[in-house]
């Protein structure tokens, strides 16, 4: 397969970037999107050009570092997968593919497709944790949790913090990310102690980082590689209301 790639090139956070066109050939349909970028980078290095910078680590959809905006969508045209899980069979031979970084005020661009997502870390530091006494590893199943609740909490806990929700949202809202974290801990017994402070502190940090607010377009759920449900946002709104009113 052959593709025309239009890739966002930007030297550093201070420079202005632009889309640059590259041509790739000899691509097979079972190659992943990141492998196509690897191949392109090999060619760029051979030519003495600067390779395209992009984040990646696990390449199996669990680390959340490979976020990029492909043909106008977070992680490209597929549903329920990260950019590293995107195969070239999702595209038509000869297609032009536009690749941009995740764009949001809260995600400043570092270089090319790499953005600084430490805003998410600061939101987590504001309250996305439980305080427990250290000691021996507790027994599994020492605290029974109903299956129904465990399933919902697991859906929230599957968030890999990639930022696809922010990137896809027309408001650059981080609500699905924050809601997944708040929801997961609000559902489980371990999260009860800091329940109220958590939701207030995490939302305050979210606002401080410059993310937009939610208008319930539900783009986030549609583009989330882990298909995390917007009902977690409803739960977080409820948590917030309860925390402020009591």
């Amino acid at each position: 397969m052959n593709f025309t790639l239009k890739i966002w090139r930007q030297k550093d956070s201070a420079s202005k970037g632009e889309l640059t066109t590259y041509y790739t050939s000899d691509i097979t349909s079972d190659m992943s999107f990141l492998e196509v970028l690897d191949k392109l980078n090999q060619e760029l290095i051979k030519r003495g050009d600067d390779p395209v910078a992009f984040d990646h680590d696990c390449r199996e959809g669990i680390c959340g570092s490979c976020g990029m905006y492909i043909n106008g969508r977070s992680h490209g045209p597929q549903r329920g997968g990260a950019s590293c899980q995107l195969h070239m069979r999702s595209f038509k031979d000869g297609e032009t593919i536009v690749v941009e970084p995740f764009r949001a005020k809260g995600f400043p661009i570092i270089k090319d497709l790499v953005v600084d997502r430490s805003a998410f870390d600061r939101i987590m530091q504001a309250g996305g944790f439980v305080s427990v006494d250290t000691g021996g590893t507790p027994d599994a199943n020492a605290i029974p949790i109903p299956k129904k609740i465990a399933d919902v909490a697991m859906n929230a806990a599957s968030c890999i913090g990639c930022g696809a929700c922010v990137a896809a949202c027309k408001n650059s809202s981080a609500m699905l990310f924050v809601a997944a974290k708040v929801s997961q801990l609000a559902l489980l017994p371990q999260g009860q102690t800091e329940r109220k402070e958590r939701v207030i502190a995490m939302l305050a940090q979210m606002d401080k980082e410059g993310f937009g607010s939610c208008t319930n377009t539900y783009s986030c759920e549609a583009e989330c590689p882990k298909e995390i449900s917007v009902t977690h946002i409803a739960r977080m709104n409820r948590e917030y209301l309860k925390a402020v009113l009591s």
């Binding site: 239009k6 966002w8 889309l19 905006y69 043909n71 106008g72 969508r73 536009v98 941009e100 764009r103 949001a104 005020k105 809260g106 027309k170 408001n171 650059s172 809202s173 410059g210 993310f211 937009g212 607010s213 208008t215 377009t217 783009s219």
Partner: peptide, 14 residues
């Protein structure tokens, strides 16, 4: 919400 994305996408398939 508009100011939360200072630089627009070249391609945005909402």
């Amino acid at each position: 919400n508009r100011s939360a994305r200072p630089e627009r996408y070249a391609m945005y398939d909402a």
